[in-house]
Design a protein around this nucleic acid. Structure first.
Lengths: 142, 142
DNA sequence: TATTGTTATACTCTATAACTATA
DNA sequence: TATAGTTATAGAGTATAACAATA
């Protein structure tokens, strides 16, 4: 793949992603929780129990930010803390049943707009998006 | 396409897009300008001179937020204020030559980071992204 | 009186640095 | 010592409410 093509794709893709991200941000339902709280909840649901440090790394925030974020989530009963089985310094946080419920409810509302838009697409376009989602995740990694 | 599949894809795609958008946001140039400053600059470049109120509406922020944002941009010499020709209450703000230069430099750097990441992908993934960019744009439309 | 823009103030989110406890 | 997590503190960014100037 020639360098020039990569650069052109980078320009195009960046604009497309930022444009849709902005649209999604404005179209989201007004939940009482911020976007990072919901992202952390979603990660806990996907990965299962994690230590605060692992979760901070996963969410690409610093540990103190995750501490504060978790304080809110624990206070709201959406995640629970348990002692690490072998290392007394560490803690394990897990999503609670209420957290899972809130996540599903929130997704249902927030995805409504995007799902509506998706229903207007051709099956081939949907396939492209399914494959693209994984690649976009890989780009955001590390 | 069944409804359930659309909803699942909406969830996945939203998370992927927001995740990459966040990454792109953090990989901005060392301009020491926030994303909203750059967005306001870009709008001024695209639309030409606007009043603070019009710019606030365009950027979907409240007028006081735009006031503070403009104070930074004017202080940095990136936009200029001029009196409104007929209405003494209003002000017109325009992007300066330095503002335009900074905007182009910022775009170049963001593209560079993404292009570097793209070079690590398989050709098949790049094809997926090329097709996806167009579909993402269509989703963000309207 | 209505409108435009600004100032005053507070809240949210995130960061770095310092501290506590365990290994 | 080194590591995991927390607390203390600061800096953006944005909001609402109150104010000044002009229409």
């Amino acid at each position: 793949m020639p360098l020039a093509a990569d650069t052109a794709l980078a320009s195009t893709l960046r604009l497309s992603v930022m444009r849709l991200a902005r649209r999604l941000r404005t179209e989201r339902a007004d939940s009482s929780l911020g976007l990072s709280h919901l992202a952390a909840l979603a990660t806990l649901e996907r990965h299962g129990p994690l230590t605060p440090g692992e979760l901070a790394a996963q969410e690409k925030v610093q540990p103190p930010s995750m501490t504060r974020l978790l304080a809110t989530l624990v206070g709201a009963g959406l995640v629970t803390r348990t002692a690490h089985p072998t290392d007394g310094r560490q803690v394990l946080v897990s999503i609670s049943r209420e957290g899972g419920t809130l996540l599903r409810e929130d997704r249902r509302r927030r995805d409504a707009w995007l799902a509506r838009r998706l229903r207007e697409l051709e099956p081939a376009d949907l396939d492209v998006l399914r494959q693209a989602a994984a690649v976009l995740d890989r780009l955001a990694e590390q």
